[in-house]
Simulated scan of single mutants.
Amino acid sequence: MRRAVAAALCLVALAAAGCGERKERTSPGHPQQLQLMLDFFPNADHAGIYAAQADGRFKQVGLDVKIRTPSDPAAPIRQVAAGRADLAISYEPEVLRARNKGLKVVSVGALVQRPLTSIISLPPAGISTPADLTGKRLGTAGIDYQHAFLQAILRHAGVSPSSVKERNVGFNLVPALLTKKVDAILGGYFNYEAVDLKLRKKKPHVIVVDRAGVPTYNELVFVTSEKNAKREGDAIRSFLGAVARGTRDLRRHPDVRPLLAANPDLDAKLQRASVKILLDQHLFDPAKGRPFAYQDPAAWNAFAAFMHGAGLIRASNASGAFTNARLPGQGP
């Protein structure tokens, strides 16, 4: 009876918590190639991945990981959906949007646990709180859910949306801010664009979206196709376990040289400062007692409900969009 009850409880919890032994490979064996497509050019957000590669963590579990850079940030999800990449890094809102369009993709783990997306302004604009956006020009990358973020933030602050002029500046967020085309930007990361501005002595002011009326979400996630999640579950679990250990190595020795080797054009000072924020604020770390890359079901459902309410997706919850069943369990 106890065994039957335990099995029933395991089945109930499987989708949300990944019930089972969850053991990844911990010995080399025959190398299996795995292609990972990044969400953007190599940068501080990927430091744990490059640490894992440099420290031989992937080889330890029998994986030959090839890291690719996308032609544009929208490409990774399409690549995994089409089977042209095994895993990709993307964004929780993009996963929900892709599924809404019929792509059979699923998030198998969180890389960055909380939103990095922020409203960033410079002192002359006088924007200390969302209420100060009244009468201001705000630049975004023209992404629909960024517009939804802004509307939610303005409602939360009691600001009339008609009093804020939203401008699509593409991905030229920082240049638009520096050339005073806009008074603030929404879409830059507090650990990257804001740090870049701080290093330039611009004294940016930052309002993180989930502290201003937007439900929290996983900024960066590992995505694969539904088919691959089932077929290559052990390899995915081993990969995530290796990234967990690479991130642990990074915390012990915050070395950005593997990252700079992957992308020599990076500003070393900016990368070090950005990695420090990610580590100091535990942005790679799940809630206490949860395994690396854990995705909170309640948070995913709340964010999906937010996107549904904004008219961005048909589903009112995140059912099928994520799984914790491929998370790492044991490893060296």
Rank of each mutant, 00 (worst) to 15 (best):
K201P: 03
L173W: 06
H156P: 08
L133D: 03
T140D: 01
F292E: 09
N301Q: 10
P31A: 14
P175S: 10
Q295P: 04
K59Q: 14
K230Q: 15
G29P: 07
R257S: 14
D86K: 04
A273K: 11
M307K: 00
A157S: 09
A299G: 03
A212I: 05
N191H: 14
L270V: 06
N168F: 04
R200V: 02
G48Y: 05
I236V: 11
E193T: 01
A304Q: 02
L36H: 02
A75T: 09
G102W: 15
L327F: 02
L279Y: 05
D296Q: 11
L138G: 00
V65E: 00
N324R: 06
A321I: 11
Q271F: 04
I119F: 01
A242I: 12
K136M: 10
V164L: 08
G311Y: 12
L259I: 13
R314I: 09
T224C: 13
V95D: 01
A261K: 15
G311A: 12
G135T: 00
F322I: 08
H205R: 14
V108K: 07
Q295S: 13
P93D: 02
G20F: 10
I120S: 06
T134F: 11
L270P: 08
T323N: 14
L186H: 11
V108M: 08
P161E: 12
L278Q: 06
G18Q: 10
R155H: 15
L186Y: 09
G83W: 09
Y294F: 15
S316N: 14
E232Q: 14
L327D: 03
P328K: 15
F292T: 08
E92S: 11
A75G: 03
V208C: 07
R314E: 05
A52T: 09
A302C: 05
M1K: 10
K203G: 01
L173A: 12
L283F: 11
A7R: 15
S121A: 15
V106G: 11
V164A: 09
I127T: 04
G158V: 05
A293N: 07
G18N: 11
L122W: 05
G48V: 01
